[in-house]
């Protein structure tokens, strides 16, 4: 009951406050879209959203790639602290296998296309990474294992690649006497594509490994005597 009252009170306050804020809005002073359009030719890409993501506000994107990596690092550390049983993920469903073998090439193609299209149309590293990750998840559900993912070092290198390439390109600009992430105009387009490729791979792998790093279904919850080991 108290919960309900608290929830109603919070919702009422927030909705009133937001409605007042939106109604009282005045016309904005700045005109950022015009500035974006004006400087778009310097970025080496022709799609404005990609230009904002990877050039004008590339620093945000860099930190965001770091956020995703942090989530994976934490998930890895938690598995270290609380080891899992053998992973038997995969549904014993022959239909899923059959469909995946049809879908997989198509998904890879779509991912590659989205990545390539990002420079001139809606698309880009995140969309491509998400499609690639979906392909990986389907594969896992179909019970196809990735042997090379069992190798911790290889897994880490690919996970870190996106952020590493991003930081390395930025630092390269810095060492060359420019601002951080201020790409030289001649190479801007290819550098952005390079960063996007690495980021796509890392994002896809990060999403797949987050799925894999949660404890498998068969493992939980622990029986009381095993559970006590983790209770202080």
């Amino acid at each position: 009951m108290i919960r309900l009252l608290a929830a109603l009170f919070a919702c009422l306050t927030v909705s009133v406050v937001l409605v007042v804020a939106i109604i009282n809005r005045s016309l904005p002073e700045g005109n950022l879209p015009a500035q974006v359009a004006e400087r778009l030719p310097e970025t080496g890409v022709s799609h404005a959203v990609t230009a904002v993501l990877l050039d004008f506000r590339s620093y945000d994107t860099l930190l965001e790639v770091a956020v995703l990596l942090v989530a994976v690092v934490v998930a890895m550390a938690l598995r270290e602290a609380q080891p899992d049983g053998p992973d038997r993920m995969g549904l014993a469903n022959p239909l899923l296998r059959a469909v995946v073998s049809w879908l997989l090439p198509l998904m890879l193609l779509v991912a590659a296309y989205l990545l390539w299209a990002g420079s001139s149309m809606p698309g880009g590293a995140f969309q491509a990474g998400a499609v690639l990750a979906a392909a990986g998840v389907l594969l896992r559900l179909a019970g196809v294992g990735f042997n090379w993912m069992e190798h911790p070092m290889r897994l880490r290198v690919v996970l870190a690649a996106g952020l590493a390439v991003f930081v390395a390109v930025g630092t390269g600009c810095l060492i060359a006497g420019r601002a951080f992430l201020d790409y030289p105009p001649k190479f801007a387009g290819s550098l952005i594509l390079f960063i996007e490729c690495a980021v796509t791979l890392s994002i896809a792998l990060a999403l797949v490994s987050l799925l894999q790093l949660a404890p498998p279904q068969e493992d939980g919850p622990l029986l009381p005597e095993r559970r006590r080991r983790f209770r202080k």
Partner: peptide, 16 residues
């Protein structure tokens, strides 16, 4: 990323 992390922590919590 936050949701995924929360789900991982939740699954671990559910497990213990």
């Amino acid at each position: 990323a936050s949701t995924a992390l929360a789900l991982v922590v939740f699954r671990r919590w559910f497990r213990v």
